[in-house]
Design a binder for these strands. Structure first.
Length: 280
DNA sequence: CACGAGACCTGTTCGC
DNA sequence: TGCGAACAGGTCTCGT
């Protein structure tokens, strides 16, 4: 389900509270119920349950698409993958279908990890780096400069879109925001990474940041039944718009498959480099 | 190294 | 209406 803006939104609402839901900072874990052991990556479910008891939630943040809970002693890390969700609920609410792990907090609250497709994972580790060390730079951080981005793109010779979605290359960008950022920067998804000029990279980084920033502003995107509350889906220029007119030039948006992912782009605004023919 | 295919799962939507 | 195919915001592993 979620990419960087959705995960950021979830982290913020858990950290600060939202409407009738409380902030979780300062709450302690009284018990953990594992309904689907396969959701626990590390350690063994019984050990996770034992270790979490009594730990206090001190901070809630995000790294790439991972939620990171700083507890008294350990880090609780959760990846929602395609269909995961975290819900703050009353402890007396009935259990929902697809609930996988329930964290009991201060009365009357609980935090529920719900995940229809069972792709999501939970880690409890003393060192977050054991889970997060392979990740690339955060696109929104100040240390990630155009120069550095250009250098990384030059080091590789890969199709641009799959490279942007490679979490070891760049953290947090997924299928939606990759397509939207490429459209915004007028680059074809199959452009070869080391064939970009410096100005093109500059434009691409700006587009990635603006797209992610708008996504965060809109509380993420809500498409399916899965994640609700976001509005970024109303700002899609290309994603899931095959056949509809490009908002810039009016040409029909095209869908192709790149790296086994549905990929949407405007054949006029985003012409394939080297292919002389432009669709009309 | 780069890429495609398959796996992991369940639910919804599409097409005949 | 019904039923199978296709598709879904992600990542991992294997073979070429």
């Amino acid at each position: 389900m979620p990419e960087l803006p959705e995960v950021e939104t979830i982290a913020r609402t858990l950290r600060l509270g939202y409407q009738e839901k409380p902030a979780l900072i300062g709450m302690s874990v009284s018990a953990v119920q594992v309904l689907w052991p396969g959701s626990i990556a590390v350690p063994q479910p019984a050990q996770l349950v034992e270790r979490m008891k009594g730990q206090v939630i001190q901070a809630i943040g995000r790294r790439a698409k991972y939620l990171v809970f700083t507890l008294s002693r350990d880090k609780l890390i959760i990846h929602l993958r395609m269909s995961g969700d975290l819900r703050v609920e009353h402890q007396d609410e009935p259990q929902a279908i697809h609930d996988r792990v329930i964290f009991f907090l201060n009365e009357p609250w609980r935090l529920t990890f719900n995940d229809a497709r069972k792709f999501g994972r939970v880690w409890l580790v003393d060192n977050a780096e054991s889970v997060l060390s392979g990740l690339g730079p955060e696109p929104l951080s100040d240390e990630f400069t155009v120069k550095r981005f250009y250098g990384r793109l030059q080091e590789r010779r890969r199709q641009l879109k799959p490279l942007l979605m490679d979490q070891s290359f760049l953290a947090g960008v997924g299928n939606i925001y990759a397509d939207e950022a490429l459209h915004s920067s007028k680059l074809h998804p199959l452009t070869i990474s080391n064939e970009l000029s410096f100005p093109q990279v500059e434009k691409l980084l700006t587009a990635i940041r603006e797209t992610l920033g708008l996504g965060i502003e809109q509380n993420g995107a809500s498409i399916d039944w899965v994640y609700r509350g976001g509005n970024f889906q109303n700002n899609f220029q290309v994603y899931a718009r095959a056949g509809e007119p490009c908002t810039t030039c009016g040409a029909p948006i095209v869908r192709i498959v790149v790296g086994q992912r549905g990929t949407y782009f405007c054949p006029v605004c985003q012409p394939q480099p080297g292919s002389g023919n432009i669709e009309g």
